[in-house]
Design a protein around this nucleic acid. Structure first.
Length: 289
DNA sequence: AGCTCTTCCTGAAAGC
DNA sequence: TGCTTTCAGGAAGAGC
């Protein structure tokens, strides 16, 4: 499942080939994951790609304004979220397309940007210049950028479990299930701890753990669990470095205890029961007699 | 308001 | 062995 390191890997690949290229035509397959398919078909052809950026788990292609006659259209952005199983690759337009390829964006150099997504949990939309700040503004800060003071502020007073908040993109953006579990293990914090109950030192360790884990994962070009591949179709290398994710029943590399799996806020959650001590049970309300 | 649960979808894995 | 059932998960929206 593409999270921050996987999306960063895809973005770096796309950045090496897309800027300067113009989209010449658009062909779509299934469109139920696209906000406005007609907008993609009408607004993208003739648009030159200026830059490729990541924000959270989103990919943002900046498109230069088109000129229609004397009229200059607004700058636009193509926003792509890979969801669970989305792939964004650039290949020769004559290459056969794998099943579930629902977006074909032909480029002016004979290649094609393609979007493949079996489960269609991804998302694709065009956002005009005037709306892009609001769209990006809904997200919290990037976990590689956020200051300790800001993170403390975001968690202060929150009675949700810390893992649920790490997955909430309005708190920090880009962390998903794998890197939430890996970061909490490195910081020695149980995923079901309430955010408001974390000590200042624990919040600091958590921030540092996210930075360590995410940077290492970027360095290894992400985790290929199910079918993640980068923009050239290559698998990542970080799946071999997972310490808890999908390791339930196997020994903790730090203390040897058996890694456990539980549900936290409906998510499969992996942790070490020794290194990550569980929260004390909430005080039971007084019972009559 | 804040938090958790449900829903969407398909392929892989578990179950019989 | 092979078919059927269950499950995983990002994020929007419903429900409590």
């Amino acid at each position: 499942m593409p999270e921050l390191p996987e999306v960063e890997t895809v973005v770096r690949g796309l950045r090496s080939v897309l800027p300067g290229r113009t989209i010449v035509s658009v062909r779509l397959g299934k469109t139920d994951f696209i906000d406005d398919p007609v907008a993609l078909e009408e607004l993208l052809p003739g648009s030159r790609i200026e830059s490729v950026e990541r924000f959270g788990k989103y990919i943002r292609l900046e498109l230069a304004p088109r000129h229609s006659g004397a009229h200059r259209e607004p700058r636009r952005y193509l926003i792509v979220h890979l969801g669970m199983t989305g792939r964004l690759v650039v290949v020769g337009a004559n290459q056969p397309a794998p099943p579930h390829t629902h977006g074909f964006f032909a480029l002016d150099d004979g290649r094609e940007l393609r979007y493949t997504d079996p489960r269609r949990f991804g998302r694709m939309l065009v956002v005009p210049d005037a709306a892009i700040a609001a769209f990006c503004g809904r997200l919290g800060e990037d976990p590689l950028q956020i200051s300790l003071a800001t993170l403390k502020k975001r968690l202060a007073g929150r009675r949700a479990k810390i893992k649920a908040l790490l997955l909430d993109q309005r708190v920090v953006c880009g962390v998903g299930n794998i890197y939430a579990d890996e970061s909490l293990w490195l910081a020695r914090i149980h995923p079901a701890r309430l955010a408001a109950r974390l000590t200042a030192d624990e919040v600091s360790r958590l921030r540092q753990a996210m930075r360590t884990v995410l940077r290492a994962a970027i360095r290894l070009r992400g985790s290929s669990i199910s079918d993640f591949v980068d923009s050239e179709g290559n698998r990542g290398g970080y799946q071999g470095r997972h310490r808890v994710y999908h390791r339930h029943g196997r020994p903790c590399v730090r203390c040897g205890a058996s890694i456990r799996r539980m549900l936290v806020s409906g998510r499969g959650t992996h942790f070490c029961p020794i290194c990550q001590p569980p929260p004390r049970m909430p005080r039971r309300t007084a019972r009559k007699a």
